[in-house]
């Protein structure tokens, strides 16, 4: 029912406003810094220093992906002149990045971070027939998923319980961003370059419910309830050395990773403006 109401709202808004509908598709880059994972990568490399051929990079490399967005643009100006520009879009960014440590026996620990951002951007600035420049602010529903696997020498990628860290760990959080965008093109098609800083808008130390990486797969709960001293972990530890020393109290000691990534997001997209009222 909510979907129907929202769709109807969009449709009616479109019919009864001077705004023009637009949608855009493009490439997105996210130069992220993830302090929790930095600690994990460093301590993991230290724990296996004698066995590692290629250690983890100190942080995740720049995440790359695509975006698709749609919304409304108001570009009020005289012919050939410059005027008020407003753009409000909602859509998704889908991003991926990975980091891998390779051992001397050619097996590896692989961490692949998938980021899905449901975001709403509002841009405010000036524009003309063929260009616009604006500052932007946005809110992002940040849905992260860490695929943590062990790759054997024959290329088999295991997510199974035979390795403690294997799993699919998810964490969600509301994030915010601010930045600027520039668009150039012909009247109804513009090439838009956007850059914005992504940050945590409140409770910056973390500790928000469900904002830490957890894998609550049923088989892990089953294994954990039998009192074993080592079983597939439900949480990715920040400090791997501490985790190895005592897995059972690691979580209690807050040795877990919260969503803490932040950094600059860059996007290059094509914006198509669909003419509304003449």
């Amino acid at each position: 029912m909510k979907k129907i109401i929202f769709t109807s709202f969009l449709f009616l808004l479109h019919l009864h406003s001077n705004a023009q509908f637009n949608f855009s598709v493009g490439k997105t880059f996210y130069a992220l810094k993830a302090p929790g994972f930095q600690t994990f990568f460093r301590t993991y490399d230290s724990a296996f220093v004698a066995d590692i051929k290629t250690p983890f990079k100190s942080d995740f490399p720049t995440a790359t992906g695509w975006s698709i967005k749609g919304g409304y643009v108001i570009n009020k100006h005289d012919d050939g002149g410059v005027g008020f520009f407003y753009n409000s879009v909602t859509g998704v960014n889908v991003l991926k990045t990975k980091n891998e440590a390779v051992f001397l026996n050619d097996e590896s620990r692989k961490t692949e971070l998938h980021i899905l951002d449901w975001n709403t951007d509002v841009a405010l600035g000036v524009g003309g027939d063929n260009f616009h420049i604006a500052i932007i602010g946005s809110f992002l529903g940040h849905f992260n998923k860490l695929f943590c696997s062990y790759v054997y020498h024959d290329g088999s990628e295991s997510f199974g319980p035979e390795k403690t860290l294997n799993g699919i760990f998810t964490a969600n959080r509301l994030m915010a961003g601010y930045g600027a965008e520039v668009g150039v093109g012909i009247k109804y098609v513009q090439l838009v370059f956007k850059m914005q800083k992504i940050y945590k808008p409140f409770n910056k130390d973390g500790s928000t419910y469900l904002s830490f990486y957890s894998d609550l797969a049923g088989y892990k709960a089953d294994a954990g309830s039998n009192g074993a001293s080592s079983y597939p972990t439900e949480f990715i530890p920040a400090n791997y050395g501490q985790f190895l020393a005592d897995q059972l109290t690691s979580e209690i000691n807050n040795n877990i990773i919260y969503i803490s990534d932040r950094g600059w997001q860059y996007g290059l997209s094509l914006m198509f403006i669909i003419p509304g009222k003449d």
């Binding site: 097996e107 054997y152 295991s158 199974g160 035979e162 390795k163 403690t164």
Partner: peptide
């Protein structure tokens, strides 16, 4: 672990390795 995940074909695999679950071990 899912090795092949296609609409009409699936391959599922369980791996065994020796030693500690947290250590570097061979298949």
């Amino acid at each position: 672990s899912s090795a092949i995940d296609k609409k009409n074909e699936q391959q599922w695999e369980i791996y065994g390795s020796n030693g500690n679950t947290s250590a570097v071990t061979s298949l």
